[in-house]
Design a protein around this nucleic acid. Structure first.
Lengths: 379, 379
DNA sequence: CGCTTTTTTGCAAGCGTGTGCAAAAGTTTC
DNA sequence: GAAACTTTTGCACACGCTTGCAAAAAAGCG
């Protein structure tokens, strides 16, 4: 029986509602397929009834294989049948069921993005760019929020397995090695962005934090700064710690010590708090490298409004990420730019690379310093 | 043949690589199932080989149905078999294939979020909150980026159909009615957040923009402002236009005219630009309602740094959205708060509501004014 | 213990697709 | 026009799961 385009259930006088009250068995049976008839009650839409390839085949007068082949690039179909199939599909509003296709091809087209606090400017930008790039690569992004603390990265990767994702991209947290291995063994590909992990198999993208730290130190020195400080969170992510270590090491090369303050999360308020402790100290720093732009903003506001300091005259600041707000006139922050485009491109390229080929393991990207107004030119 | 826990392919001396070169047919056959053997070459992972319910059943010595029932809440399984199944599943790393389950249940558990420019603070917050809420409701979010201009909202909804999403939530753009209807007819539920549409079927969430505009006017009046202006983008989204109309109307009630400036997108730079045109005019406004916090920031920076105006002494400003940056000391923006939590809760609640019940059509939410420092207390 | 009632279990059909295989149809060649 | 080839087509099985149905096992009962 050919199902037509508009699908309404014809159930006179509210019979549909009573379906809910009777046993689950009957509901289940009734749910399956309902033939079309003219609706004389209330134009109630039928719950769940996508049009299938069978419907299209019937309407076009061909076999179901023909329909499948029409929508499979490179398959053998004559131009004539393709036309007829397309026409019928159009009329019926047919869309290939990717779930079923994924089942057959064992390739769902789904890529999971695992991320927490995704409303953070840098993360949001990354997610946006990733989804876009994935889409143009013919994949689709599934977003898994790991805001909850209870081992949720592991739970996220489990979700990833449930949906037979082709790959997972981790922007936050670090999963248990056992789970990672499980994913890898299931044929999933894993990309780790800015998280360090010694497990073999995932593609790791990292920034050259040490180099950036060195650049920061020399920029401060050229500006005549002598009392360096480093504002960090106590999140302790490897990349954040790498910046800290790198900064301390680079400063040491010039015989300078660094005052390190760690507080809270990598957010505005933490920067604000750090300003409090940093500028009430006896030897006030004249240069601060903030692990993060958000913290830099907090620090700047603290310095300006709580201590009346002028930036960059009294105080030079460098941030990291180059989020949009950094270019706003109120901040005009000199900061290291996350190479979001490169990160995204190399991730997706790796996902599409041949699995059996000698696989690249990691990428090390450079974060250039964007000069604005928070470091003075000369002493 | 029972597949064991660790799955490595044993192919001595690089045979695997040569697979690529031979005909597609052989590859396809080889891809299917490969028996386990000890790997004596290089620990190459087998591409794509999730463990299935069959494997678990075999290991646990029960039927496949038993496995299925173990993972189906409310199904009838004895405690003993459940134990054995769980144990086997654990050992094998089994995860129910949601794609296949969705195929049977015709309920994928997928909810699509259709959004453009998702790195905008307000949108990012909404996406974060939505994904979180959906996850706790047992759904999973699929993110569809509609940044490209070419009718991409329609394309997005097509994707939605491809993946048999249970529902779509539109945060950006507005789809063609035909597509919307197609989705609805396929049994999909649609939520429109802050986009107006006269089509019947979707759940529409809107803010009371008119009321907010009235509040803004009276706040300005109480502060002694007399020259009101409205800073808008020329995006022309219904909700943005509603704010504009509401503001003009409310001002008119007090016999005041409003200078309206529209420019570009709803971003910082546009606010900056608008400041240029607004403050070079002969009769400079002393109060500006910005359609958006981002534009408000741009306007504030323009007013302060290009024109040396003091806020709120010379100029009062109100924004809309209450994004995180609004509370930063540099801005301290008095603004209307998007009730993100309410939006999210009501959306997800509606998605879970009974389809056959008398369905609610829309929600009208209130955006309260958050008082900070950009409106002076008294004249 | 035998009977009835309840719970558990396996079988098999089906969800919507892709695809190898062989048959059918079309095309070229002599 | 027949033989040799190529392209197109339909059949049927597979993917991994859910679930109605009936048979089997367990439990309750007099």
């Amino acid at each position: 029986m050919c199902k037509s385009f508009t699908r309404y259930v014809s159930l006179s006088s509210g019979l549909l509602r009573s379906f809910n009250k009777i046993s689950g068995l009957v509901v289940a049976v009734a749910r399956k397929r309902v033939q079309d008839t003219v609706n004389n009650y209330g134009f109630m839409q039928l719950n769940k009834s996508f049009v299938s390839a069978d419907d299209v085949a019937k309407r076009a007068g061909v076999s179901r294989s023909a329909v499948s082949r029409t929508f499979t690039p490179g398959a053998s179909v004559s131009e004539e049948t393709r036309q007829r199939v397309m026409e019928a599909a159009q009329a019926l509003g047919y869309h290939v069921n990717q779930l079923a296709r994924g089942l057959m091809r064992s390739e769902s087209g789904i890529v999971c993005l695992v991320v927490s606090e995704m409303d953070t400017p840098y993360r949001a930008r990354l997610v946006r760019a990733l989804t876009h790039e994935l889409q143009t690569a013919g994949k689709i992004a599934m977003l898994i929020n790991t805001d909850r603390s209870d081992g949720s990265v592991d739970a996220a990767l489990r979700q990833t397995l449930h949906y037979r994702a082709d790959a997972s991209i981790l922007l936050s947290g670090l999963p248990d090695k056992a789970i990672t291995r499980l994913c890898l063994n299931s044929g999933q590909r894993i990309v780790l962005i800015n998280r360090d992990d010694d497990i073999d198999g995932p593609f790791r993208i990292n920034l050259d934090d040490g180099q950036a730290a060195r650049v920061a130190v020399s920029a401060f020195l050229r500006a005549g700064c002598r009392h360096l400080a480093f504002a960090n969170s106590d999140v302790g992510t490897p990349s954040l710690m790498a910046r800290e270590r790198g900064f301390i090491a680079a400063a040491a090369e010039f015989g300078l010590e660094v005052t390190v303050v760690r507080h809270g999360n990598t957010v505005y308020e933490s920067g604000r708090k750090i300003a409090q402790t940093l500028f009430t100290e006896p030897k006030r720093p004249d240069a601060v490298f903030c692990v993060n732009d958000l913290m830099a903003f907090g620090l700047m506001d603290g310095a300006r409004y709580d201590f009346g300091l002028n930036i960059p005259e009294d105080l030079c600041i460098v941030g990291f990420d180059d989020i949009e707000q950094s270019s706003w006139t109120s901040y005009n922050l000199t900061t290291f730019s996350q190479p979001v485009d490169e990160i995204v491109k190399s991730s997706v390229a790796w996902l599409q690379s041949d699995a059996t080929a000698g696989r690249v393991r990691s990428a090390n990207l450079h974060a250039p310093l964007i000069w604005r107004k928070t470091i003075r030119n000369k002493l």
